[in-house]
Design a protein around this nucleic acid. Structure first.
Lengths: 134, 134
DNA sequence: CTTCAAGTACGAAAGTTTTCGTTGACATTA
DNA sequence: TAATGTCAACGAAAACTTTCGTACTTGAAG
């Protein structure tokens, strides 16, 4: 076996700025730095191009994104699916602030953002599926 | 001149280390630095006393904790209830990683930590109450 | 060939969080 | 009183995150 292209580091929790970039990659799919920079600029007019570039380079080093260098403008792609990262973040928060209790977390989630009746029933359906699926 | 406590700053998101201390304060109630330090040492044998002290001083400046200086060993207390901070953290994560969708967050929470049948039914009850309460 | 635009790479500054050594105040007790 | 132990205060180092200036490369006009 040849060496794997990337080191198999344990998945780290993305920082705030990194998550912002990941959100764009999930939304747009594989993108160049320029594309990500433009997308960020929409909500954050001050953002500098090289700042975004550097962040994305670091993310590539950390293994948060994959980079295709075959074109002059490198193309970046999130390495983990959005749902996977979400699960990781939730699991982390669960440990750090909820003593591992998913129940409490769900309760505060409903309180934090007044869930609509529609959301509530969607959640109910999810519970059904979840119970059946197990 | 009252350089007393601090202004009424908007509640900041506690850092990782700060949250660790808050967890202990919520669990034990108002505590001295030594008590917190001992509690932390149980899970983190290397923790230094002055490190904890400094953190708690900073937390007092930021308004995350209240400090009673009437005794030689100052007594610290979390300023916000645990639930309130949990809500804040959830709300923050909701914005940063879930596009504001509580539904998706709940779904990933159930996935992140295989919820038991018991937990699921507790959550169902919560949904009922929540719906009624609205 | 020269210039210009669009890129990456790199390093360092600036900002934030975490850790810790040292100092001096105050108690306790021998 | 002197020695010892406990504590807050402070500052600075260490570690991590974010921002940005500058240099170098390459492709496309001119």
């Amino acid at each position: 076996m040849g060496k794997t292209p990337k080191k198999n580091a344990p998945p780290q929790r993305p920082t705030d700025a990194e998550l912002e970039i990941l959100n764009i990659l999930w939304q747009r799919g594989a993108s160049t730095v320029r594309e990500v920079h433009q997308a960020i600029s929409r909500t954050k007019p001050g953002a500098g191009y090289t700042t975004v570039l550097k962040l994305m380079q670091i993310m590539a080093e950390k293994g948060l994104v994959r980079r295709d260098e075959s074109q002059r403008a490198h193309v970046y792609e999130a390495r983990l699916a959005r749902e996977q990262t979400q699960r990781q973040l939730i699991g982390d928060l669960l440990d750090r602030a909820f003593d591992g209790s998913a129940t409490k977390l769900v309760m505060q989630a409903l309180n934090a953002k007044r869930a609509s009746a529609e959301e509530l029933s969607t959640i109910r359906e999810m519970l059904d599926e979840f119970e059946r699926g197990e």
